[in-house]
Design a protein around this nucleic acid. Structure first.
Lengths: 235, 235
DNA sequence: AGCGTACGACAGCGCAGTTGACGTAGTACA
DNA sequence: TGTACTACGTCAACTGCGCTGTCGTACGCT
């Protein structure tokens, strides 16, 4: 990973492409997010991005050194959108729940960005604001600092992790999903109750949950546990 | 996704490759796992796999129709390894914790397989055994069936999600990690305490946690919450 | 011994990310 | 207004990817 060669301050020369489009970092990021949203994560390639922009694919490299760089910019944009129009209510539990659902929903449609965001740091304004907001909620709620930091990490990574898994499921081609359903019915639903009593007893429940995201429930579990620890710390 | 064209029952003809290796599904799976373990998830390509096997890359397609198929086999193998040598102790909380750590550790070195395993179903023996074991622990602990299924999903997806994120971090080239560290120090550590009081107060704690997996802590939170719900259900 | 075929090798397709050279169009300054 | 500079869009090409169709051969069966 080299230094950022591409100048961050705004560019001065703007020449339209052959198709008359004036490029910019924002336009490229927006177009990339639109591509991913419409055609899935696998549709995001430099070549397709160039086509969608109406420019030569290599023009992208005038604004980002690599796709890694571009994905970091996508991550920052998603963080920004997740915070847009959000105001804390003062109820720490409700606030965290709302933020969690927003992060999850935002990244769900952009799994590659979620993978990066989880362990890279953009160091830019919106990311810093998000960290500050979440830590602020926890600390003003009364969590001691070490606990607040640990819960912060668990909270963020949980929402990103579920988003990545859910996004991967959504990105599967329809044929693969129906194939899995067939495999499932052939393998699980017909197991005999003697060898696999627990699966047999809950097969109908497992089937009902297939394809639904378990994130909201997992988030509630995390908030339950956090609340219990807060009560214990106050005692 | 077509039907499985490659015959599952064991093959009869075995001709060594030019380099004298006799191929088989097991050998290919083992070699693929070794490749991923040694050189990261990105090292797993059909061409490199062929080279590691001492065979032409296209020979792999005699045993799996696609990389998707191969990854499903890797997933099944990882599930098998995670269960190897494990015996339930009867303490549901300790048992779940042990299983969670095993799944996390296993998939952590094989993120692509984890991504697939989370929302595909292999329908094969070891996967079924794992589902049966986890559900069994929850149901004999006393969780009502619907709750047991929901906790099962949250538990599995949490461990897979963290494994994917952690694996992605491990797979980053060393240069990217040091670049991020520099960005972090430049952006976060020097924030003024007025604009970002919460980050400033916990900067040292955040730095100490960088790069460490938050999974064990998040797992404990989930188990805490489950235990509380079990107590409530019994009451 | 001989036949049928499973399987390994080879060549090649389309697509991916990325790079370096090139020329032009826009800006800045006189 | 003119001129020099250079940012930026384009082009062509390199490497490596998953995957396929074809071919010959050596294995295992009868």
């Amino acid at each position: 990973m080299s230094e950022r060669v591409v100048p961050e301050p705004q560019r001065r020369r703007r020449r339209p492409t052959k198709q008359g489009v004036v490029l910019s970092q924002e336009l490229i990021v927006d177009t990339a997010l639109r591509l991913v949203g419409q055609h899935g994560a696998e549709a995001l390639t430099v070549r397709r991005l160039g086509a969608a922009l109406g420019a030569d694919p290599s023009a992208v490299y005038r604004y980002f050194h690599s796709t890694d760089d571009l994905l970091l910019a996508l991550a920052e944009e998603l963080i920004a959108r997740a915070q847009q129009g959000w105001e804390p209510t003062g109820d720490w539990r409700a606030d965290l729940r709302e933020i969690g659902l927003r992060i999850h929903a935002g990244y769900r449609s952009h799994p590659q960005a979620a993978l990066l965001a989880a362990h890279r740091t953009t160091g830019r304004a919106h990311e810093i604001a998000a960290v500050e907001a979440i830590l602020g909620i926890l600390r003003t709620a009364g969590f001691p600092d070490p606990e607040a930091v640990r819960i912060y990490h668990a909270f963020v990574d949980q929402s990103l992790g579920f988003a990545v898994l859910d996004a991967a499921a959504l990105a599967l081609p329809a044929a693969a999903q129906s194939a899995d359903l067939r495999v499932w019915q052939a393998s699980y639903a017909r197991l005999d109750a003697e060898a696999h009593p627990h699966i047999a007893a809950t097969a109908h429940l497992l089937a009902a949950d297939m394809g639904r995201s378990g994130y909201p429930f997992a988030l509630d579990l995390l908030l339950d546990a956090a609340e219990a620890r807060l009560a214990a710390a106050r005692r």
